[in-house]
Design a protein around this nucleic acid. Structure first.
Lengths: 223, 223
DNA sequence: CGCTGTGAAAACCTTCACAGCC
DNA sequence: GGCTGTGAAGGTTTTCACAGCG
């Protein structure tokens, strides 16, 4: 409640533009790669090339996080990596529940990237009696009835929805009511979430249609 | 080379802003939904609500496609659906090859959304001898060696890559050399493609990290 | 009178270019 | 000399608000 000691030092709590936040994961991955390659110090050119953006863009984005480079030298890879991880909030491992253990949910549950990128899959949920009770990637699949209890007991902050579009809104409402603050949906429909809850949608069909647009433009640039 | 008969009639071949193209799939899906519900005519308010955008945004976007609504009335749902499908280039079913039939590739191969959204999965490719030869979703998985021949014979225009990050660039180079014009990658790393080829990347780890950002901001809005 | 289609305004984002520090 | 950090310029996207048509 009480917000004491407003230390206005190096970062004046700039608001971090949305577009910048969307790029931070790329930078984090690029820095991981450089670190793995044993590179200790890197210029904005080096990092931005690894991340696939322009160097001015990178420097501008980083400037919102405060000043962490050395002029004439570049950035300390490990230090910068830490700053970005802190900004993203992936220093303490976030807990994820996956709802819907069909083909896609199964693939996600086995996806090693979760661990590498700072997340722990702590719960798997489905409704199908054929699936409930199975062990997938070291976890037993629980029934949807237990969703609220699981989210609460496991302290999940993020839910991944890999359920049919027809069920997505209902499941979404339940995970939100259970207290998660972020939802990643793989269904194509629009989902409504209350203010304060963050929703992101991955729509494979939409991605393909965007590719289709550019493809057919290539063939018939006129009409 | 010769660019004849430049008929400058209703649409002056406006360039379709990138942001607009990215939203067209949402509109298409929203219109499908309205059509299924038996709605024949809809105002920009109705359509935009179903698509999850503002009504002014929708009207502005549609204005780039030409004038297809009736003032005081709204849009003919079926007609508008057709116009958007045509703009996206999904009137003639595009052919897709999936490379990498692990957990994710398997899930994608079985994903019904491809058909519903205007695509045919015509080929599945992997390197693992355990997987090659298996029948998945009605198709036999072929070996990576056959990739170029398959893309050519099947007339694939889009490749979906569900391969390990370490293999992604090599596979990408090959599908591009084989002639596909669009690539959808599920690996997290940066991929380089030549000019004229369209690349889109779905990075689940990055999506989660963006959710994490907003989640931890919610808890500690200060530092 | 209602709703589209669209200029104009406002917000946002990227790129440039250079002052300032190492 | 080299590279960061950042104002300022330029570009794109969104929102507003209303003229114009049905």
């Amino acid at each position: 409640m009480s917000a004491p000691v407003g230390r206005a030092r190096d970062a004046v709590a700039r608001p971090l533009p949305r577009a910048t936040v969307d790029r931070l994961p790329r930078y984090l991955r690029a820095l991981d790669e450089l670190e793995t390659r044993g590179i200790v110090t890197a210029s904005s050119m080096t990092v931005s090339a690894a991340a696939g953006v322009g160097s001015a863009q990178l420097r501008k984005d980083l400037s919102f996080l405060g000043s962490h480079g050395r002029r004439g030298v570049g950035y300390d890879v490990t230090h910068l990596r830490g700053r970005i991880a802190a900004a993203l909030g992936v220093t303490s491992r976030q807990r994820v529940v996956i709802v819907g253990i069909g083909n896609l949910g199964h693939a996600l549950a086995n996806y090693a990237g979760f661990g590498e990128r700072g997340f722990s899959v702590v719960g798997l949920v489905d409704v199908d009696p054929e699936v409930v009770g199975n062990r997938v990637s070291g976890l037993v699949v629980r029934h949807l009835d237990e969703l609220e209890r699981l989210v609460d007991e496991l302290g999940a902050t993020i839910a991944v929805l890999a359920v049919p579009a027809s069920a997505a809104q209902r499941v979404c409402d339940r995970v939100v009511a259970a207290g998660v603050g972020g939802v990643l949906s793989f269904s194509s429909g629009e989902l409504a979430v209350p203010r304060g809850v963050d929703l992101r949608t991955v729509d494979v069909g939409a991605e393909l249609q965007i590719l289709a647009f550019h493809g057919h433009r290539r063939q018939s640039p006129g009409a």
